[in-house]
C-alpha cells in the first residue's frame, strides 16, 4: 500500500514535468522550419509577413513593397486570377507565376511582438503594484472588519471575470477615456497595459493581503508597545515580514500578464510596428498567435510556433529568474 501510494504520487508529480517537456519539444519541432530559415536573427527582426526582395543585400532597408501610385492601374482584365499565399500549396500546376513574385520571399521576425509583450507587462506591473500594495495594506491593517470583508469579496470577484469581458469593456468604454486623456488612438500599448494591470491587480492584492495577515501579532504588538506609529509598523514590520508573499504575487501576476491574449487582442491595436510612443498601437506575442493562427500555413505557421517557443522561453526565464533571485534573497 505504501509503495503504491508512493508511486502514484511520484507519477502525478512527474506528469507535470513530462507535459512541460512535451510542449517544449512539440513547439520546437513545429517551429523548426522557421528556425532553419531565420535562425536567432528572428528575435531582432522587425518585419512580419513582409515581402522582401531576395537580391537586396540589406533585408530591412529595401522592401519590395514600395510602389508608386502613378501609372499603376490596370486597364482591363489582364488575367483573372491573382496569386495568393496559398496557391503554392493548393494548385501548384494551376497558377501563373509572375517573375516578380519569385524574386521576393516573405520575411518573418519577432522583435515587434516581443517588445510589445514586455512593454505591456511592464506598464501593467507599474500600474498595478502600488495599487495592489495599497489595497493589501488597507485590508490587512487599516480597515475595520465590516469594511474589509466586502472589499475582499469585490477583489475576488474581479479576479473571476473572464478576460474577454475585460477586452470588450476595455474596447467600448475604457479605451475612449484613455484616448481622451492621453491623446492618440483608443487602442494602444497604454490601453492594453492599463487593462492588463486591472486584470492582475486582484491576484497581487489578494496574495499580498494573505501574506500580510500571517505577520505574528506579537511582533506588531511589541512594535506598538515601543511607540511605533501605524505607518512605521507597516513599513518596518509587515512589509519585511511578507516580502516573500509579495514577490510571489508579482511572479504570479507576471505569468498572467505575459500570456494574456483575449483582452490584449482587443486593445493593443494589432499592428506589426514598433511603438514610437506609449500611446501608439503595437502587438504582443499571444495576440499575434491568436490573430494569425487560423489562416496561417507554411512558413507563416512555423513562424507562429517559433513565436510560441519564444514566449515559452520568456515566461520561463522571467519567472525562474524572479524565483531564484528574489526568493533566495528574501529568505
Amino acid at each position: 500500500m505504501e509503495k503504491i501510494f508512493r508511486n502514484l504520487s511520484l507519477s502525478s508529480a512527474s506528469l507535470v514535468f513530462i507535459i512541460l517537456l512535451g510542449i517544449f519539444i512539440t513547439l520546437f519541432l513545429a517551429s523548426k522550419d522557421a528556425i532553419n530559415e531565420f535562425g536567432i536573427g528572428f528575435i531582432t527582426n522587425p518585419n512580419w509577413n513582409k515581402e522582401v526582395s531576395i537580391d537586396a543585400t540589406d533585408k530591412s532597408s529595401q522592401s519590395a513593397q514600395d510602389f508608386s501610385l502613378e501609372d499603376d492601374f490596370l486597364a482591363d482584365d489582364e488575367d483573372d486570377m491573382i496569386l495568393d499565399e496559398d496557391d503554392a500549396i493548393l494548385d501548384e500546376d494551376d497558377m501563373l507565376f509572375d517573375d516578380s513574385i519569385k524574386k521576393t520571399f516573405t520575411d518573418y521576425g519577432a522583435l515587434v511582438p516581443i517588445v510589445g509583450t514586455l512593454l505591456t507587462t511592464l506598464i501593467a506591473l507599474i500600474f498595478a503594484l502600488p495599487i495592489a500594495m495599497g489595497i493589501a495594506v488597507f485590508l490587512a491593517e487599516i480597515a475595520p472588519k465590516n469594511i474589509a470583508a466586502p472589499i475582499s469579496v469585490a477583489i475576488e470577484l474581479l479576479a473571476a471575470i473572464p478576460s474577454i469581458i475585460f477586452g470588450m469593456w476595455g474596447l467600448y468604454y475604457f479605451a475612449p477615456i484613455v484616448a481622451d486623456l492621453v491623446g492618440g488612438y483608443q487602442v494602444s500599448l497604454l490601453t492594453a497595459g492599463l487593462v492588463l494591470g486591472i486584470m492582475i491587480l486582484p491576484f497581487m492584492a489578494a496574495i499580498t493581503r494573505d501574506s500580510m495577515n500571517t505577520t505574528p501579532d506579537v511582533l506588531k504588538e511589541s512594535a506598538y508597545a515601543m511607540g511605533a506609529t501605524k505607518f512605521e509598523v507597516i513599513k518596518d514590520i509587515i512589509f519585511p515580514y511578507s516580502k516573500v508573499g509579495i514577490i510571489g504575487s508579482i511572479i504570479l501576476a507576471l505569468g498572467r500578464a505575459l500570456g494574456e491574449t483575449m483582452a490584449v487582442a482587443f486593445l493593443i491595436g494589432s499592428i506589426f510596428a514598433l511603438p514610437t510612443a506609449i500611446n501608439s498601437p503595437t502587438i504582443s506575442i499571444p495576440v499575434a498567435m491568436a490573430n494569425n493562427f487560423g489562416e496561417a500555413s507554411g512558413l507563416g505557421e512555423s513562424s507562429l510556433f517559433y513565436l510560441a517557443l519564444i514566449l515559452f522561453v520568456i515566461s520561463f526565464g522571467v519567472i525562474s529568474f524572479a524565483k531564484l533571485y528574489f526568493l533566495k534573497g528574501a529568505r
Binding site: W48, N49, Q65, F67, D72, E85, I101, I271, N291, N292
Partner: peptide, 21 residues
Amino acid sequence: GWRKAYGAKKSLSWPGDQHIG
C-alpha cells in the same frame, strides 16, 4: 503595384504608420 507588392492575402502587414487593427 498592389498586386506585385502584396497580392490577395487573408492577413498582411499593412504599410504606413497611421493604421490600427
